[in-house]
Design a protein around this nucleic acid. Sequence first.
DNA 1: CAGCTATGTTACAGCTTTATGACAAGTCAC
DNA 2: GTGACTTGTCATAAAGCTGTAACATAGCTG
Lengths: 232, 232
Amino acid sequence: MTEKTILIVDDEQAIREMVDFALTRAGYHVVGAENAGNALALLTQFRPDLILLDWMLPDISGVDLARRLKKEELYQDIPIIMLTAKVEEQDKVKGLEIGADDYVTKPFSTRELIARIKAVLRRSSPPEKEEALTVDQLVIDPRSHRVHVSGNELHLGPTEYRLLHFFMSNPDRVYSRSQLLDRVWGQNTFIEDRTVDVHVRRLRKVLSDTGYDHLIQTVRGAGYRFSAQVIA
Amino acid sequence: MTEKTILIVDDEQAIREMVDFALTRAGYHVVGAENAGNALALLTQFRPDLILLDWMLPDISGVDLARRLKKEELYQDIPIIMLTAKVEEQDKVKGLEIGADDYVTKPFSTRELIARIKAVLRRSSPPEKEEALTVDQLVIDPRSHRVHVSGNELHLGPTEYRLLHFFMSNPDRVYSRSQLLDRVWGQNTFIEDRTVDVHVRRLRKVLSDTGYDHLIQTVRGAGYRFSAQVIA
DNA sequence: CAGCTATGTTACAGCTTTATGACAAGTCAC
DNA sequence: GTGACTTGTCATAAAGCTGTAACATAGCTG
């Protein structure tokens, strides 16, 4: 998967650093802004997957900023978690009313913060397409995360599974090793092209018991192709 | 069982306090909201077992709010008792038409209120899916809250019971640890993903005596899957 | 056919994900 | 309170995967 980017908007440097440290360790990419103006400027530069917004900011209040973002079509889909020192029910309610997706009360544990971030991201990420794909007797079913050929389950490692799923979703088309790395491994991976060969080999090996390894064809000088047509 | 939570939506603080006092003493957990907006916001945070809704509210009328909630799949199962100062048959009918489960006329005695709440909760809690689920000789029966394999009862802790019930209700499908936390533990619990492993382990342990632990399968990199199908 | 390049295979050390057992804190009925 | 259960978290042990390097083959070019 791709790394998620989180924008933390808080005027206290200590908080930003703490959050940065915790979230980075949890595998997120963190960008900080110390006030609303900064945050807005940054938003024109890139699109975070989630925004952590302090309730009180020196220029525009976090509440107003949230309200503003939720009004703009471009930004309204970015989930927001409010950070607040206040504990009153009123504020909590207000925060949620303006469209924040959750709120965390200071002081908070990094564990809670991470848990809430995960929950919000999970809720807001679109459900994946989970149609089962079939080629002849070969079936890959994302819902059960299973691959089987006429009743016999095939065991694939995570990478081989993704590779096969990608191939079956995009049949009859050649992909270079680099393209496969981008599409199957993710965009920011730094892996040798030849590694793809190894995984193709592993996938073919599993498929070979049932003869379906022929579906994965080598296109010399170009890459690999998955062909839905069963070649005798 | 868990303590029942009741959301009281009324703009008069005196009423809220009175109800809070009475219901708390009766063993309920009470949360108050003074208007419909507040109530809606609160509903994103937790799920009450019942809502006491004033007929007239400052922003959206109680009637409209009730109608709205009953339309949404997520909330339509929460029983609603309308609180009304009016006594006309017309209103009574209207209230029930929109889907309220009962109504109480102000002024009301706390005894009456509690009695009606109990009645409504009793009536509305059973409609949960209570069917016993079976896989081969393994049976889980929500009515008796029991699990047994060919006559022998298995002892499961509450969490393991819910986990097994969830799995048996949703077979042949992978769930990530996070999804399981959402679905089995509830949406606003913030515990470690890895804790799921431990409960899976506990559940498997109990099932292992009868060999049914194999039904709970680990899908590396994806989560767990309960599968009745034994694919060779 | 020699020489060269692209692809196939295998082995493996390091790393990541799971499984497991132990534990302290929390609950609940007595 | 007390004792029997539960529960979430850790630390540690196991398993399972992954990316590379090295060597074997196959394919192409001239």
